[in-house]
Amino acid sequence: MLKVEAFQVAEQINIKSFRAEFTGEPYLATNYEVFYVLEHGKYLYVLNYGVVVFVDHSEIEKSDLIRFLKNFCERPVREDFKEDLLVEVNSQKKLTFNYTSLIVPEINEHAVRVIMLNTAQSVALETYESLGDDILEGTKRFAEELEKAGKVKISPKNLLRFIGRTINVKNSIIDNLYVFNSPDVVWESEYLSKLDHGLREMFDINTRFRALDYELRVVQDNLELFTDLLQNRESTRLEWIVIGLIFVEVLNLIFGKIFGSGH
């Protein structure tokens, strides 16, 4: 029985720096991920979108590795985002997918990587879903205020800060959308392809991705509306300033003629 545990520890992990400092030769490494086959049947998978996945590590080992990883993290995640999966290896049984467990008739490094990668994608999705819900809730509050009061009662500075935060979160999610792609190795093996497909269905990856994509589109529409409102508000404010200046200039002209004629 293999115990797979995925943790979202940050929004980004610097894979290059981590590899340079971590003792161990990677089984597979790119600029975006590094996969280690360790002693005693243990595996470690670190992905640049802030996820680390363990197989059969003790609590102390996990804590030590996460503590070490934080030296290479950008924007650590405060909430606990975790995904667990138990994998039973039994040559007498067929490939079977359950809610929180999996039965495989055979296992190797490529199969372990596919399992760990899908688990990582699931916990990343959970993180992005939480971020998406937060920014969508923020835009809903402004929309409700607009409906009730006919305007958004927020200063231009605070509105711009909210728009900036929302855009940053949205860009962070979009930058990592590639995480939901299947690894190239699954196209080279029918067994790995079935394993990957079954895991994606078990974790509901595609449906959750489509829901998140739709949510981001709603947020985008709301952002465009709030940006237009801000521009209109600023345009109106500038128009009144111009009107005020013209009025002052007219008064100066009138008083100038009055006092000028008096002389």
Rank of each mutant, 00 (worst) to 15 (best):
R233G: 02
V250K: 02
D221H: 12
F226Y: 06
L223Q: 00
T236S: 12
L229N: 06
I241L: 15
V248D: 10
L223R: 00
R217Q: 10
V218R: 04
T236H: 14
V218A: 03
I246G: 05
T227Y: 05
E224A: 12
E234V: 13
N232Q: 12
L223N: 01
F247D: 00
D228V: 10
T236Y: 14
L225I: 15
N232C: 01
S235G: 07
G244F: 04
E234D: 11
E239L: 15
T236C: 08
V250C: 08
E239K: 13
E234H: 12
E224R: 12
F247M: 14
E249A: 11
V248R: 06
E239M: 14
T236K: 13
E239T: 13
G244E: 11
W240Q: 08
R237Q: 10
I246S: 02
R233I: 01
E239G: 11
T236P: 02
V250P: 00
S235A: 14
Q220C: 06
L229K: 01
R233Q: 10
Q220S: 14
I241W: 12
L225Q: 12
E249V: 04
L230A: 00
L238V: 06
V218S: 01
V218G: 00
Q220G: 06
V219W: 03
V248G: 06
D221W: 13
Q231E: 11
Q220I: 04
N222T: 05
L238C: 02
V218M: 10
L229G: 04
E234G: 06
R233K: 11
L238N: 07
E224V: 14
V219Q: 01
E239R: 14
L238G: 01
W240R: 08
R233H: 03
V242T: 07
R233Y: 05
W240G: 09
L230W: 03
R237I: 03
V250G: 00
Q231I: 11
E224K: 13
V250N: 02
D228R: 12
G244R: 10
T227K: 11
S235I: 08
L245E: 03
E249M: 02
T227W: 05
Q231F: 09
V219E: 00
L223E: 00
E234W: 05
